[in-house]
């Protein structure tokens, strides 16, 4: 589904990713773990096409298509979703309006019909309920004045409505208390399916108790230095990243 080969990325002339290889098949959840500054968020941003993240080498194949050729919104319409570590505030644009505009923009790009207002309203109401989001909150400008937990729930709400094929979760657990973490992970787990892939970027093992990965990759200094099964998370929790950092150095 997502196949990354030798990905090398610079930001402001500083090389962050240094020949990264990764393959996430459909139906699997892979976790990227690593110390601060290893390039975890850079990987997410690069895949999403953030300006200034310059790919100097390598290729990314997404469902048989060259992902790097596409513009940011085209990647979104192709089914790539990045859940932001720090979701942006959009003043003056009600959450509902934002999501509906995004959904219909994606549909238009894929040559599909727009979702009608009643259908949209019904769908968003159902999803909001499972995520314990009050409908009144959806009438407020997106993320403006929302708490950290509310913002993350809005990220999950959006992915549930946009139904992307591939999810990248960037530090989704940061700023969440244990109750919010449960609501958010339940929301993400509900989206697990045979035809959907996920990449969970996290510093801590905690999130992986809730969103259980099939594979874990350790990212150090722009490269994946070690991969393993779910048990790797526990080992990291016990011993930290030092061993891998030292090896890489």
């Amino acid at each position: 589904m997502l196949n990354i080969e030798n990905l090398t990325v610079s930001v402001d002339d500083k090389t962050i990713l240094k020949g990264l290889n990764l393959n996430v098949p459909a139906g699997e959840v892979h976790a990227i773990m690593g110390p601060n500054g290893a390039g975890k968020s850079t990987l997410g941003y690069t895949l999403a096409g953030r300006p200034n993240y310059e790919v100097t080498q390598g290729a990314v194949d997404f469902n048989g298509e060259d992902l790097l050729e596409k513009d940011v919104h085209e990647r979104a319409a192709a089914g790539l979703y990045l859940s932001f570590q720090y979701p942006l505030e959009i003043p003056g644009v009600p959450a509902m309006t934002f999501i509906r505009t995004a959904l219909n923009a994606q549909r238009k790009l894929r040559g599909e019909e727009e979702m009608s207002a009643p259908e949209f309203l019904k769908t968003i109401r159902d999803v909001a309920k499972t995520l314990k989001i009050d409908m009144d909150m959806l009438k407020r400008p997106l993320n403006v004045g929302f708490s950290g937990g509310e913002k993350k729930r809005m990220e999950v709400l959006q992915m549930a409505l946009l139904q992307p094929k591939f999810l990248i979760l960037d530090e989704t657990d940061s700023g969440l208390d244990i109750d919010a973490l449960k609501v958010v992970s339940d929301g993400v787990n509900a989206l697990r399916s045979d035809d959907r892939g996920m990449l969970v970027i996290t510093h801590y093992q905690r999130l992986l108790d809730h969103i259980k990965p099939d594979r874990i990759h350790i990212l150090v200094d722009g490269r994946i230095v070690h991969s393993g099964g779910p048990e790797l998370a526990l080992e990291l929790e016990a011993h930290g990243y030092d061993r891998y950092v030292n090896e890489a150095a």
Partner: peptide
């Protein structure tokens, strides 16, 4: 970038933000 990541073209994203 955030709005575009959700599927809006740059033009649509600018219009949405300005309207907000």
């Amino acid at each position: 970038f955030y709005a575009m990541q959700r599927g809006l073209s740059q033009e649509e994203a600018v219009a949405l933000l300005v309207n907000g």
